[in-house]
């Protein structure tokens, strides 16, 4: 990258250029503030005293008073707890299925000597350009008996074609010599995949786990159309009720109406924080792999 090249910055900067540089840095700072502030506002609101928050108008630069009531309510709410549990279940099972199928598919499609691979590739890539759409997919899922079933949360999106292509491209770049050595030792394809290919693909697999897991964590639409019982709802669907249908009263039953309105505002924000924190914790750990993951995917399939 040219500007970071210290050697070539011998040219003295004109004052016009300095202004341009300062302006760009300012724009970036503004962007950082605009990106973070909504989350910070929610954090402050969730820690605020309910009555003060309800009366407050405008931005928050610190919590108003200090109260953990909202968090207390959230963690005692049976729907939130069950939503959390369900999401974890869908996430773990779903990601495991995603990874298994994506690895199997990517491995086979990366074997250059395997003749049918181009035909299979075409069969798979075609679905990126044309598909049945919402209603036929919904009817098929329903017709094969997955309606209101655990598997409706993990099977219809079992493979992301994009991820499959990313992983295939990355597996193609692994030198054949590794595989040949194992084959001479009598290893079959399963052994080669699990003991040779997967161990050297850890970086891209980490990104893939992140993409799939975040996808499960954030998903609500499939749950909304495929699940009927509230006891099976994932956290995002519960959140949708809390945040977007103004149904916080269902969480504060027993309190007088006025009291529930007061707590309600804070609960919205604490639920948001509670549901975002897991993503915020995992994400920075895997950030260094992103660029690699996104880049491999952009190489023509």
């Amino acid at each position: 990258m040219h500007p970071s090249n210290k050697k070539s910055s011998f040219q003295s900067q004109s004052s016009a250029e300095k202004i341009v540089d300062a302006f760009m840095a300012f724009v970036l700072c503004l962007l950082v503030v605009a990106t973070l502030y909504p989350f910070i506002y929610s954090l402050f609101a969730s820690l605020s005293d309910g009555a003060l928050l309800t009366r407050h108008r405008g931005l928050l630069f610190h919590p108003l008073g200090f109260s953990l009531d909202a968090y207390d309510k959230v963690f005692k709410n049976p729907m939130i707890i069950s939503g959390y549990k369900n999401t974890l279940l869908y996430l773990v099972a779903g990601t495991a299925i995603n990874m298994l199928l994506t690895c199997l598919g990517a491995y086979v499609l990366s074997r250059k000597s395997f003749k049918p691979r181009n035909a299979i590739m075409l069969f798979i890539i075609f679905t990126m350009f044309f598909n049945g759409g919402l209603i036929p997919t919904f009817l098929i899922v329903k017709n094969i008996g997955l309606y209101n079933n655990f598997f409706a949360m993990v099977l219809p999106n079992a493979i992301s074609t994009m991820n499959l292509i990313i992983l295939r491209t990355s597996m193609q770049e692994i030198p054949d010599s590794l595989e040949e050595a194992a084959r001479i030792d009598g290893a079959n394809d399963f052994t080669i995949l699990f003991q040779v290919i997967i161990p050297v693909s850890q970086a891209v697999l980490a990104v893939m786990v992140l993409f799939y897991a975040v996808g499960h964590w954030n998903s609500w639409f499939n749950a909304m159309i495929y699940l009927r019982q509230r006891a099976k709802f994932p956290i995002q669907l519960i959140l949708r009720e809390v945040l977007l249908s103004n149904s916080t009263d269902s969480m504060t039953t027993g309190l007088p109406t006025e009291g529930s309105a007061v707590i309600g505002e804070g609960i919205k924000h604490s639920t948001m924080i509670v549901a975002t924190v897991p993503v915020l914790i995992i994400y920075p750990m895997l950030q260094k792999y992103f660029v690699k993951g996104v880049m491999i995917g952009s190489i023509k399939g």
Binding site: R111, I120, N131, P136, I159, D189
Partner: peptide
């Protein structure tokens, strides 16, 4: 290639059921 066929089979089944069957369902 028997192992490769075994490995790709579930992937193909997935695409058949959740991608191609809905395309067939477009007839409705």
């Amino acid at each position: 290639y028997i192992y490769l066929y075994l490995m790709i089979a579930p992937v193909i089944v997935y695409y058949l059921i959740f991608m191609y069957a809905p395309m067939f369902g477009l007839q409705i």
